[in-house]
Design a protein around this nucleic acid. Sequence first.
DNA 1: CAGTGGTCTAGACCACATT
DNA 2: ATGTGGTCTAGACCACTGT
Lengths: 256, 256
Amino acid sequence: MGRHAVIGLALRNPLYKEVKRKITESLRRGEWRPSEAIPSEKKLGERFGVSIGTVRKAIDQLTAENILIRHQGRGTFVASHGESRYFFSFFHIARQDGYREYPGVELVDFARCTADPAIADALRVEEGARLFRFTNLLRLEGSAVIVDDIMVPVSMFPGLTGRMLRERSSTIYRLYEEGFGVSVLRTVERLRAVRASKSHAALLGVKAGHPLLLIIRVALSFRDQPVELRYSYVNTEAHEYNAEPTIGGEPGLSEA
Amino acid sequence: MGRHAVIGLALRNPLYKEVKRKITESLRRGEWRPSEAIPSEKKLGERFGVSIGTVRKAIDQLTAENILIRHQGRGTFVASHGESRYFFSFFHIARQDGYREYPGVELVDFARCTADPAIADALRVEEGARLFRFTNLLRLEGSAVIVDDIMVPVSMFPGLTGRMLRERSSTIYRLYEEGFGVSVLRTVERLRAVRASKSHAALLGVKAGHPLLLIIRVALSFRDQPVELRYSYVNTEAHEYNAEPTIGGEPGLSEA
DNA sequence: CAGTGGTCTAGACCACATT
DNA sequence: ATGTGGTCTAGACCACTGT
C-alpha cells in the first residue's frame, strides 16, 4: 500500500515530517507532559496510519533535537528540565581547568517593567508589553562569578513572584516547566566583552571597568517562540564559557 | 539471513557502526578525497556485505557530523572547505545587527617555536615539539576587528611558509586540506573576556586595557586529533560572537 | 534513459526492562 | 512472559540529475 493511496494532498511533504509535526503539536498542547512517556511506536503508527519505520524516523529527529528521550525497553519520554544531567546543556560556564559545578543562586532584585523596542524585538512581543525583570547572583565555590539579568513576559508567567524564585528547589527552567507549562527547548546566545558597570562590579567584587563576558541569551520553546531574554555578566578571571559550535546550518532543526 | 549468521565476534557492536567506522577509515586514509563522490549506497552495501538500509544509517550519521554531504540524484560527497557556504560554520563573528561578512586577512607575523606544556597538552604533541606560529589581522568592512594567533605542529604541515599563507586565495582550512591533506572536521572553543595587551591594542586600534573577547579554539580532525590551536582576540564594540549551543552530550558524535 | 539518493512498508529478530 | 525500543533486511516506488 503506497503512501499516495491515502493522501493526494501534501505531495511534497514526506509522511514522517507530517508525523513529526503532529507529535510536536501534541507536545505543545500538553497531551503528553515533560518526563511522561508518549505512546509506543506501534501505537503511534496505528494512530497516524503509518508504519513503525516512519514513526521511528520522526522520533529520531525529535530525539536529536532533545525534545524526546528514548529508553530501550521502557519507552519514549518527553524531555524535562527535571533531569539534572540536563543542566549543563544550558549552563556553559566552567572553571578554566574544566571543572564543572552547580552554581549557588541568590535573587538580588525582582521587578516589573515594560519592553523597550530592542527587548520587544528579541522576545517577539509588543513594544510596551509587561515584563518581569529579575536579577540573580550566581556563585561558584562560594565566590560571585555571574550576574544574570532576566526578562520574561508577564503573559507567559502569570503570578510569578520573587518568593517563587527565591524558594525554588530546582533550576529556573524546571520552574518555568512545572509552574507555568513553558518548555525551554533550546537557546541562542551572542557574546561580547564589556567593562563592568559599578553595580555589576560591586556584586562581583571587581573594580568598575573590569572586563566581563556578556552573554545575551534568548531561550526558545516550540516553534522557536522566545520565552526569556537573559543578560549574563561573567567574571572570567578563573572561569570561561565553553562552546562546541554547531556546524552547517542546524542538524535537522532548520528544516521544520 | 540474520546478522549473526555472518558475524560471531562484535556481538555488542551494531553493523551500521562497523560500516561507519570503515567509511571513516577510508576517508582518513584518503581513499576518497574532499569534494569527491564516494561509491553509491548500493555499491557500499555490496562491498561491506550489508543491506542498503544499514549503509544509509551509517551515512546518516556521517552527514549529521558534516563529514559527508548527500545530493539527491547525484551521489554522496566528502565534505570540503572549498564550499564557501561552509565558511560561516567556523567563523562566528558577525556585526551586532546580524550582518555577516567575509573578513580581509593580513599576515602580520610568521615564525617557528616549540610547544610549552599548555600548548603541548592542547595539541596533544610532545612538550618541546616544533610548531609554526603565525598571526593574522582580520578586517571587517575595512576596520581591524580580530587578531588570530595560530599554532600548528610542523610535523603535520611540512613546508608551510608565510608566503603560502599570504598568497592563498582560499580559507586557511581549505589550505590545510588541499596543501597538506589535513581535514578540519570540528572545533572546540572556550571564551573569556580579557584586557587588550599593548601589541593587540595597536593592531586593533584600541587603547591598551580595552576589553577583548578571547576565543581559545582547538581544531579537530578524524578521531578528534587536534591539528590547530588558535587564540582569537576580538574587539566586540561593533561585533559579537554567535553561539547556538549544542544540547545534551553531542548529537551522535560522542558515541563513536 | 539509467543511476543516484529519499521515502515508506512489512516483517524478523535482538536487547532490555518490567511484571 | 510481555512489551518496549534497537537493528537489519528486502523490496517497492518517488524525486532528482545527468546523459
